[in-house]
Amino acid sequence: MYSRHAGLTYIVPAFALLGLVLFSPVFYGFWFSLFRIQYGAPTDFIGLGNFLRLLDDPALGGTLTRSTVFTFFAVALTVAIALALAVWIHKLGERRGFAVQMIVIVPWIISTVVATLLFRWVFVNDIGLALSLARWAGFGDIRLLNDPTSAMALLIGVSVWKRIGYAVIILLAGLKSIPEDLEEAARIDGATGWQVFRRITLPLLKTPLLLVTIVLTLSNLNTVETPLVLTGGGPGNATRILPMEIFDRAFVAYDLGSATALALVMFIGNILLVLAYVRLAKWKT
């Protein structure tokens, strides 16, 4: 016999599990952040004291700016290069296309720590390949990690290299889903290659592009391994971004109160980004 509540009973276990795994740490974290934390345990209730301490930190504004710059350039470059690669691979034959896909995807499947260490060995020390090549090419001693701007550029470069495989796969799937007759019809009507791409391909790639942009934004905004292993946040504070700030507050200074508060602020930022994605996706359909 059909019950009106049968559907509900099917989804309750899944929602309960999701609530337990996804939301309970957030609620616990929020409760935790309202207390003075001593030796990892909550003591006195201080309300929003931990959040207000964040406002008193004069260095946090710079960290937020660097996080924005890093995320913006890392996402923009990844999407631009991935789009170009996806279009190119799409035009290659099946075998060659598959081979290039495999090459592009390798950095994505390597552990972030290992991938970043590879870059460190190439760029960081005096016997690294990058310095040898620079000397061979007559550029003298180039030490990318010693200069604030080039260290940030390198951090962005590593992030682009690491995540480009994911973006290429999603965009390639999007390209393959576009009916060929649409582009063919445009060409018959006399459209140039660029016009076909701009007027037909790009608009039909909007959803995968949006998905890639949001996922990459969240991924870059929350990355801690790459700056931690590659630069340690230096030189000075040049590559210190928000996730690393949270990590250092929690595991170096052992200030769990402000680390939790900052993590919650970032969590809210992430939620807002996801909402923006949902809203934009809705607008598209």
């Binding site: 230096g234 030189p235 000075g236 250092d248 170096v252």
Partner: peptide, 17 residues
Amino acid sequence: GGYRQILNKAAQNVVVN
């Protein structure tokens, strides 16, 4: 906790900046 890291950052600021 963190005093070694902060002292190293001070040295970075002198050398690099």
